[in-house]
Design a protein around this nucleic acid. Structure first.
Length: 574
RNA sequence: CGGGGUGUAGCGCAGCUUGGUAGCGCGUUUGGUUCGGGACCAAAAGGUCGCCGGUUCAAGUCCGGCCACCCCGACCA
């Protein structure tokens, strides 16, 4: 028995002619059909041997690029004790999306959602002096996230391996350097994987104040929306994206009469108002009453054609959650559902920056009535904030060019949070001036499984996957045709031996199948080089060589085939 | 969590309206013929019809409850 070479007849994992009906995105379907991974439960996947090899290659690329910038590999546990999470307040904050358990003594643990707390715990023990800084560590470790809605195969799952790196610096300037080093490492890492990842500005969440970037790969399968300027290099997640506005708002418009009431019975939506008053949506002011996690109510005022961006609002309010106001909230604020307007409301009011100084029609805070000639700054006041969604065609905040909105998959992110965790965990070092100072930290994540499926989403054709050579499960797919012809089989296996001695990773298709089946599977699995040894090729004294990415095959003299293939493989590796 | 959908053989599906012996294609097994783009012939194996309960002489089908999975949204360093 020969176990060192993989024969396809023994491959653990079969290719599927048809994908399960519930697989929706092209990459999800191919991932299942090509036997990359299999579902175990919602959002939980098993890597099959082919996918496992890809995942390990992706990891190795990440490892090499992390090592290159001086990050040190380590490993922290999956199960993490509650006490440490409680120090930063995240035991409670993360409750809805984490898996928890207790040991036999009743001590609580979390399946780690991420590892900032624990890496800080170690940093304060291992790093005592500024002389030991800067430091950067990383590990590949499983994360548990009880996502409300896993989706699209490996793109959003509940357990996945992440490469997470953490930097520790003595000050802000040092952090900026570490951050820049990671930014560069990410660019190289994704390029080596064959991913065309762009760095976009991202929201830092309610906690952080600092800089964050996401690495996004544009594809229809993605769930994030990215605003991209068609003229300059501005790119931002919609959670953060801004737009250029005319700055003539908030001045009392001369000559506009005082607000007056107009009857609008039963007209509670902007659409209904547009229809009955024959005005465009932007002629109206929409006023939303919302409550934050602590129950504090706030009014958000914006033009009728604009939508609230919840991520922006959460950040402004410093809250983890925003919900619609309840009946009691309406009563205390003085609003009437369906007829809420900013004039006379008794509540904190946020005026979106896209509202300008024109005379708007707004709710009258009275059933079946609206007000016309409502002017911001004159008839009502509030804080001016940017809480609206940017949309296709808006003006770029940098250059005024047109923004377009594309879908993307976030394959990695980098986040400079400064002293957020070190303050809470009292993670300090002895500085040059003899005082204790908190670490300036950053964290840097890459999802392995998500990266693998994103590679599939972006490297495929109608027949199957077209792996970038650097991450392909094997370098070459050797096909013997027909395999039960003794001469063919002997020659194919001789070539197999030569290839393996030359360091070429070969998947050998020794199955007694027809040419059609073998070629279709080779196309589906998508190994970069297809090498066919057949009666027909041997008649020419040759093996046939065909790159997956090309439709042209080439006959190579049999005794030169191994060297030629090995040469191609070497050319990928530099 | 809200809305929608689907659970019948390994995969893709039909059957349910109108209750009466559980089917088709692919795959699998055996034998044979084939052998460069998902072959052909013959024979065969494979199903507690998601689970629990109810109605009925009789339930895949009707009724109730539950569960799982998928999609949209919400949520999500």
């Amino acid at each position: 028995m020969e176990f060192s070479r993989l024969r396809q007849s023994k491959l653990f994992g079969r290719t599927l002619r048809e994908a399960p009906a519930d697989a929706q995105t092209p990459g999800h379907r191919l991932m299942l059909r090509a036997a990359i991974a299999r579902p175990l439960a919602s959002g939980l996947y098993t890597w099959l041997p082919l996918g496992f090899r890809v995942a390990k290659k992706v990891e190795q690329i990440i490892r090499e690029e992390q090592d290159r910038i001086g990050a040190q590999e380590m490993e922290m546990p999956v199960l993490t004790p509650a006490e440490t999470w409680k120090q930063t307040g995240r035991w409670d904050a993360l409750e809805p999306i984490t898996f928890r358990t207790t040991d036999h003594n009743g001590r609580e643990f979390m399946v780690s959602y991420t590892h900032e707390e624990f890496v800080h715990l170690h940093a304060k023990q291992e790093i005592q002096s500024y002389r030991q800084l800067p430091q950067m560590v990383y590990h590949f470790q499983s994360k548990g996230r009880d996502e409300a809605r896993p989706r699209a195969g490996l793109l959003r799952v509940r357990e996945f391996v992440m490469k997470d790196a953490y930097s520790f610096d003595a000050d802000e300037a040092g952090l900026e350097k570490s951050y820049a080093a990671q930014h560069g490492a990410y660019a190289r890492t994704f390029a080596r994987m064959g991913l065309d990842a762009i760095s976009v500005e991202s929201d830092t969440g309610a906690m952080g104040g600092d800089i964050a970037h996401e690495f996004q790969v544009l594809t229809e399968a993605g769930e994030d929306r990215i605003a991209i300027c068609t003229k300059c290099d501005y790119k931002a997640n919609l959670e953060k994206a801004a737009r250029s506005l005319r700055r003539d708002g908030f001045q009392v418009t001369e000559g506009v009469p005082a607000p007056s009431e107009i009857p609008t019975p039963g007209t509670t939506s902007i659409e209904a108002l547009q229809a009955s008053l024959k005005k465009p949506a932007e002629a109206f002011l929409k006023t939303l009453l919302l409550r934050d996690a602590s129950g504090t109510v706030v009014a958000v005022v914006l033009p009728g054609d604009r939508d609230v961006n919840e991520a922006k609002l959460r950040k402004i309010l410093g809250t983890a959650q925003v919900k619609f106001a309840n009946e009691a909230d309406f009563a205390s604020a003085g609003g009437v559902p369906g007829f809420v307007g900013p004039v006379g409301l008794r509540v904190r009011t946020l005026i979106d920056s896209s509202a300008d100084g024109r005379a708007y029609i707004a709710g009258a805070n009275k059933k079946d009535a609206h007000l016309r000639d409502v002017v911001s700054g004159r008839d009502f006041k509030g804080e001016e904030v940017d809480v609206h969604d940017v949309r296709e065609g808006d003006a770029c905040p940098r250059c005024g060019g047109k923004l377009e909105i594309k879908r993307g998959v976030e394959v990695g992110n980098i986040f400079a949070y400064g002293t957020y965790y070190s303050d809470k965990m009292v993670a300090t070092f002895l500085a040059e001036d003899g005082t204790r100072k908190p670490f300036f930290g950053g964290s840097y994540g890459i999802g392995i499984g998500r990266s693998v499926q994103t590679i599939i989403e972006t490297h495929r054709d109608e027949r199957g996957i077209v792996w970038p050579p650097q991450v392909a499960p094997y370098h070459a797919h050797l096909i013997a045709l027909p395999v039960n012809d003794e001469d063919v089989r002997a020659k194919a296996e001789a070539l197999l031996g030569q290839l393996e001695r030359a360091g070429v990773e070969v998947l050998y298709d020794d199955r007694d199948e027809t040419a059609g089946v073998k070629f279709a599977d080779a196309d589906l699995i998508g190994i970069p080089l297809r090498v066919t040894v057949s009666k027909r090729s041997l008649k020419e004294g040759a093996a046939e060589l065909k790159p997956r990415s090309s439709s042209d095959a080439e006959l190579v003299p049999f005794d030169q085939a191994a060297e030629k293939i090995a040469g191609i493989v070497r050319s990928w590796q530099k």
